[in-house]
Design a binder for these strands. Sequence first.
DNA 1: GTGAAAGCGCTAACAT
DNA 2: ATGTTAGCGCTTTCAC
Lengths: 327, 327
Amino acid sequence: MADVAARAGVSSQTVSRVSNGARNVEAGTRQRVLDVMAELGYRPNSAARALKTGRFRSIGVIMFTLSTLGNMRTLDGIVTAASGAGYTITLMPVAQPTEGEVAGAFSRLQEEAVDGVVIIIEAHMLDRADVIVPVGLPVVIIDSDAGEPYVVVDTDQEQGTRLATQHLLDLGHTRIVHVAGPATSYSATRRSTAWLGAMRDAGLDPEAPLQGDWTTASGYRLGLGLAARDDVTAVFAANDQMALGVMRALHESGRRIPDEISVVGFDDTDESGSFWPPLTTVHQDFGGIGSRSMRVMLEMLDGAPPSDDRIVPTRLVVRRSSGPPPA
Amino acid sequence: MADVAARAGVSSQTVSRVSNGARNVEAGTRQRVLDVMAELGYRPNSAARALKTGRFRSIGVIMFTLSTLGNMRTLDGIVTAASGAGYTITLMPVAQPTEGEVAGAFSRLQEEAVDGVVIIIEAHMLDRADVIVPVGLPVVIIDSDAGEPYVVVDTDQEQGTRLATQHLLDLGHTRIVHVAGPATSYSATRRSTAWLGAMRDAGLDPEAPLQGDWTTASGYRLGLGLAARDDVTAVFAANDQMALGVMRALHESGRRIPDEISVVGFDDTDESGSFWPPLTTVHQDFGGIGSRSMRVMLEMLDGAPPSDDRIVPTRLVVRRSSGPPPA
DNA sequence: GTGAAAGCGCTAACAT
DNA sequence: ATGTTAGCGCTTTCAC
């Protein structure tokens, strides 16, 4: 910057003003400085700027590394929204979604160059106030049971689950089994709970959900057991990947979908409509989750109260994997 | 830091030493400083540190936002490797994979707090020296036609393609069609070229590849056309998503896989083994791409010459979507 | 509209 | 083993 100032015959202060787009610089002076900047290939040093202003223009995202498709899409939404607001995203992976790991990532984050933190861990640990509280940064949590004072942005799991369950109920199914996500996942338990609620509201007495872990492999394993039973006419899987695994098991066992058994998923990834048969599923607006998270984050950064609009609705996408139960 | 120093009765320099784990501090002094740090909740300011050292301990990743599954997995590998080396990842999305956008991202990156840049854009633009050259940072490019002086890390596209093509050839197929990725993608064109080469080496005269865009939708559209032809016995799709779309079109048209027509993909995502039928495909080691990129980056950061080992081999995973052609 | 001075929090270099 | 000095590149404040 000093070089630019010297070459342009102005003070470094003026260079700073031009660099930041301040308006009290004469057009001629500005142009001269701009020319010299280009000539010298000048780029402001963000560390120095951050040191002085105390702002980094970056948001940290803590996420479980080997993440699900949905989390990747959510990250994509966050990155896009952040970029639009002139912020970059700094990734903070945690190897395992355990409380210790998250606390560790959090403490590391305090020395990172970020203005706020978004957490996507989908775990139950976040109600432990001591894990998060020590940080003096705005925090937005996605998909968590963290209560006050945390700001949580999330898909409307209850509404989505009821959409899926009601669809099956309306079709005439009563013997519906739920293939749940891992018990450590908050969204998985909410989907289980909402499913139980919807079933009971319909006067049914559902059996306990089967326990998967989000992967196609777990869906396949559980699906093999389901295929061997003749008292089940529909399966509601907590995500599309497990639904895919269930369908594979059903296919291999010679069970016809949806004639003998219906399958419904949750997520609606880009591929779900091309599964065979195309999967009926609950569409989650991952991009919406990401952009709302960033909007709330930006509000907090500005010292404004975060807007209330933090639960993102879903919609049911009916395809060919669901139909009436066999007569 | 000054507060800690005063409270612990030492100089700020000693606090700095403790903070950085220097060994020339007496155990008692260290403990006292540590205690005060905890008491005061001291956290080093990374901006100040970066300003002084000129190092940010962060790597920027430029990527096309609405990315493919494979790119997401590669990013995951990079993040994991970076984290292990004590680096964070700063994401720089580009809205469109055009030359202008990439150049823009690059120029923005220069003011970002990063020590090096990894580019995942899978586009042909990177041989344009003027796009990248101006940056004084180490650059590693994934999947690109960028030649010297750029360091490129990539999957062995040629080997993978030949594996897939030879598999079909060995099965007895001669009427094989290639569903290619977008012409703007370098890996897509390399797969096309390698496929043409493998076919010609087998003495065949293949028809021009069909042009998809990586999405299941494009695979479906092209698959519909393929399903209507009776002179095709096998399809080699340039990625698994397009293969999935092709299979859906085939199913809907009542064509049996692999009895009437075989389908082979490229990528081997987590879901591919659960498609129906389970997809024969070329396994790409996305994590390996990510970790090698980071290893090379770290070498460059240390001023060492980047190691040669930058092409990651693939392997063929034979499942049930491929078989001999109909008699 | 522009410039001079001061200092953000840290660490490299040197001194003790 | 510990302290002192200086300065990284920028922006804020205040003066002109």
